[in-house]
Write a protein that binds this DNA or RNA. Sequence first.
DNA 1: GTCTATACACAGATAGAC
DNA 2: GTCTATCTGTGTATAGAC
Lengths: 234, 234
Amino acid sequence: MNYLEFKKLYAASSREIAREVFLQNRETIRTKKEKTAVDNLEKIFNAVFRITYKKGFQAMSMRDLSRETGMSLGSLYAYFTGKEKLLNIIQTQGWLIIKKDLAKVLTTSEDPREKLRAVIRAHIFLSEFYRPWFYFTFMEARNIKPTKLKAVKSMEEYTQQILTDILVLGETQALFKPGNHELTASMIKAMQQEWYLKRWKYRKLKVSVDQFADHLIDIIETFCLVKKRAATCK
Amino acid sequence: MNYLEFKKLYAASSREIAREVFLQNRETIRTKKEKTAVDNLEKIFNAVFRITYKKGFQAMSMRDLSRETGMSLGSLYAYFTGKEKLLNIIQTQGWLIIKKDLAKVLTTSEDPREKLRAVIRAHIFLSEFYRPWFYFTFMEARNIKPTKLKAVKSMEEYTQQILTDILVLGETQALFKPGNHELTASMIKAMQQEWYLKRWKYRKLKVSVDQFADHLIDIIETFCLVKKRAATCK
DNA sequence: GTCTATACACAGATAGAC
DNA sequence: GTCTATCTGTGTATAGAC
């Protein structure tokens, strides 16, 4: 499956996320009319991503956000009780998106080789589609209060566990070589992250998301599969 | 070469870095006595790393820094003209360290296979030794003024170019398979970065820096080398 | 060379008009 | 539902005593 096909099948739109945030925060959002609220939430999130990409969340002032959205300070505070709550909403929602879509992918195949390919691709494609959400969640992870911090680390652990499990399953079926699967899973995650952390680099190199995913899968399959046609170091 | 041997041969001490900063900023540092200045600079850098690891540079106040170093606000300003200058000093110095030590490694061997291993290991070992500097430089890269931004991107490009050149050289000698070497070099960089960005994960998995480097080299050699003994997916 | 006390700007947040 | 005007805390930075 390539990126275009994936996009059609799995990804919710940016607007649907805003709608979900609205539904889950109805009691604190002062604007009750759905269309207005969802419109504004979408505007707010996009503005946050634009500003924080350049200087980070802490350095973004509410006045910056007011300017970028075209909304007044007072209006902004109708949508969240404070700056910290806004941070919280974005981080929580980001994690929910990933988890939901990854779960769908997991059920697609029984063959560990297929499964591995599907999960690696899905994660990269999701991070492409929701790049601002992924980038933000990674870069602002430090600002999470200790109470919520556990949830973020376990998200890293959750996605890594999925990969490790597939590698272990493949070994029991004699499809994958034995080895330190946890470490290999970590390396896969590192390469996946590269895609959304250094997007500017790949734009410059003119590497598409499909090429990137194929290359990563090629490296991992050459390393893990018991037999494999001679791969090129492409 | 393992980490212990590397450490003895290449790495400057944390104190020597502070001394170099002192020498390069003599005109702006108000404290003229070398020992006092270097002592305090070392204390300041360590405090900055401890604080910003948890909450980032923007969120660190000068009062935080005063508390952590045990120095007063007034004293701190004797060492840099402002918070922004402090950021600048750390980022510049971090880059100088890496460049100098990497250059030394490059001259060690003529065989591309040896060279590739040496460069990959050296980068990981340096990032282990100077972990706070690497972590800080990566995470605070966004806060650099556009005038200095070019230097940071070219640092990423510089280290990547070294890897690409080795892969291309190896291909011309029929030691490495043909392929998209630039993309492979990117993937190597991504995995190297993983080591200093997610140190907590490897502490938990009880993976040493030597194991990590070996695993990364194993993956890349399995993918790139023309012939290779059957590798385990360890 | 280092400290305390303080100036001054700007942040987050809210009250109340429209 | 959105705006403007404003409160209050905290930030960076400095002046001047010791």
